[in-house]
């Protein structure tokens, strides 16, 4: 697959082939991470995170590739691994071949947002399975509301839409309560 093909597949929501193709780079990246103190598990986690970042980035309509896609992927991995090393209070020079030096800004990566997403992970864990299913089908699989209504056996498209709205409202309310709850919690314990 060429870089253009991979990007096209990702944008069309057909990610499987693209992920398989990119996964071929894992052994080299793992070797790079292992040579600076990471173990197999950490390497895999970082690589998976890098795929997530890459796919998110590529999916944006304004994304323009300025290097080979694999070079870009190495750049993300290098960035994430450096970030991880910093958390472990280590800061070795990473001399990787064929890589880009990327900053957090290049990747729209910021810890504050990552933290918010971690909180939302928990929120999503507490919404009902049905809500999760609707979200996943609509946003990730990009199914139409008609298909969702059929597959999840809603009586009509409108009732599926209403359900989706209620799910969204509930999730956002939960996220907000949590934000506030967090603040109350902090002030209580000062």
């Amino acid at each position: 697959m060429t870089d253009e093909e991979i990007i096209r597949e990702i944008r069309a929501g057909r990610r499987e082939q693209a992920i398989k193709e990119l996964y071929n780079e894992f052994p080299k990246i793992r070797a790079n991470i292992q040579s600076t103190g990471g173990d197999e598990g950490t390497a895999r986690e970082i690589f998976h995170d890098s795929l997530v970042l890459l796919i998110e980035k590529v999916s944006k309509p304004d994304f323009e590739l300025t290097s080979k896609l694999t070079t870009y992927l190495y750049g993300i991995n290098r960035f994430l691994w450096k970030n991880e090393l910093r958390k472990r209070n280590r800061n070795p020079e990473l001399e990787w071949k064929d890589t880009l030096i990327l900053s957090a800004d290049d990747l729209d990566y910021n810890e504050e947002k990552e933290e918010k997403i971690r909180v939302l992970d928990k929120v999503l864990a507490s919404v009902t399975e049905r809500c999760k299913k609707i979200f996943e089908m609509f946003y990730y699989r990009r199914k139409s509301m008609k298909e969702i209504a059929d597959q999840l056996e809603f009586s009509s498209v409108n009732s599926a839409k209403t359900q989706k709205y209620k799910c969204m409202e509930k999730a956002i309310a939960m996220a907000r309560e949590l934000k506030q709850g967090g603040q109350i919690y902090q002030t209580e314990h000062k």
Binding site: R15, E16, I19, H48, L51, V52, I55, E56, K113, K116, I117, L120, D121, V123, L124, K132, F135, E136, Y139, Y140, R141, M168, A171, I172, A175
Partner: peptide
């Protein structure tokens, strides 16, 4: 942000 989280969870599962 919520949509991003939904997509991320699904993507991680797929990966």
């Amino acid at each position: 942000l919520l949509i991003q989280t939904v997509n991320r969870q699904a993507l991680i599962a797929e990966i």
